[in-house]
Design a protein around this nucleic acid. Structure first.
Lengths: 195, 195
DNA sequence: TGTGACCGAATGAACATTCAATTCAGAAAT
DNA sequence: ATTTCTGAATTGAATGTTCATTCGGTCACA
């Protein structure tokens, strides 16, 4: 990752924080500027427009997530363990960066995101990861999109409960939920045990 | 539900549709007015402000959801079947009202929602439903919030895949996922089946 | 002829963006 | 070592636009 000018970073962090608190609207550039300790014009030295600022911020975070999710991952360890590892990494990233979840939710349904439907390396990464699990027969034969969204969706849900509901999950709780998910996503056992 | 004036309903529907397409910002009152076939001033005959319009719209939809989710539900049928029924109802509501999901996501993280933290009868309904399942020992002993968000979260995820991913789920797919969830949420079976 | 629904041009505030002016760091010249 | 020069970084007041909201007036109907 290239060295980012101090100011630029400050603008990123301010934007992230303000968007969390005030939403997407409700954060005028003037406010970003004040909060970052720069003049309004300075932002336009680094970014073409508000839209551009938001898009760059999105990429900036996505890059961090790519790194975070791959921590300790390794092609050589068993797939199940990789699955757990990736999910846990993602979970902890959200926990440690609580502003990110809110920003994403705002961003995902916004004109900015829709426009160019920007390429999303992070998404591709997960996508490929699940595809591998499916091809090797370890994950039930669903499309990688479904696998990806189901797993990621549950991680996000957990992170939200944790962050907004202020409920403290332990690693064991998370593992338990992932185990449920894993059972469901893998091929062994789908027996119905009632009536 | 009280009878709603034609114009008022048109304003609701327009808002919902426009918010889906253009996001929350990006839908000026003038646009809502034009799309609803009324004058700008008319909106202010029915609603105090834009904020008020959005909040009323939220309640309006929530009321519909309360009805939708209870279709065919009945205290007398087995809890498991009620669980499946409620989830399926919710799923089909989202499928049949694809604008709603986007509107909610915008609404949930917005200044409007945060402010008064409005009472939400729909949420209470689900909450009580899960509480009942937990008290009667049919659902694993988690807080009702967790049960609620986990189940609802997965329904939403499925609905999103369906609506935005344009993947056609069958009822059987949905049932399969719900079965996985149910297995995970109930007490029997949580055995780890590897190494 | 009074009342309430409805209209839409006019108002004013908020905001993104611009730009002329200023500072600053370091390279080049002396 | 000191001065000069240059372009990049930074500033914040000014600009123009986009809206939410208002309000005086019209229309339909009792």
């Amino acid at each position: 990752m290239e060295q980012i000018a101090e100011k630029k970073k400050a603008i990123f962090e301010s934007t992230l924080e303000l968007v969390k608190d005030n939403g997407f609207h409700g954060t005028p550039m003037s406010m970003v500027a004040k909060n970052a300790g720069v003049a309004a014009g300075t932002i336009y030295h680094y970014f073409e427009s508000k839209e551009n600022l938001l898009c760059e911020l999105f990429s900036y975070i996505r890059k961090q997530m790519i790194e975070a999710v791959q921590q300790g991952d390794d092609e050589s360890i068993p797939y199940k363990d990789r699955f757990f590892g990736v999910c846990m990494n993602l979970y902890w990233f959200y926990i440690n960066n609580p502003n990110v979840l809110k920003f994403f939710e705002q961003f995902v349904n916004s004109p900015y995101n829709e426009k160019g439907s920007m390429s999303d390396d992070f998404n591709s990464l997960l996508f490929n990861f699940y595809q591998k699990g499916i091809k090797s027969g370890q994950i039930r034969n669903v499309t990688p999109e479904i696998a990806s969204v189901l797993a990621h969706g549950n991680v996000i849900t957990m992170a939200k409960i944790h962050t907004f509901g202020k409920i403290a999950f332990e690693d064991t709780d998370l593992k338990q939920i992932l185990q449920i998910l894993w059972n469901g996503m893998t091929n062994n056992q789908s027996t119905d045990q009632d009536t």
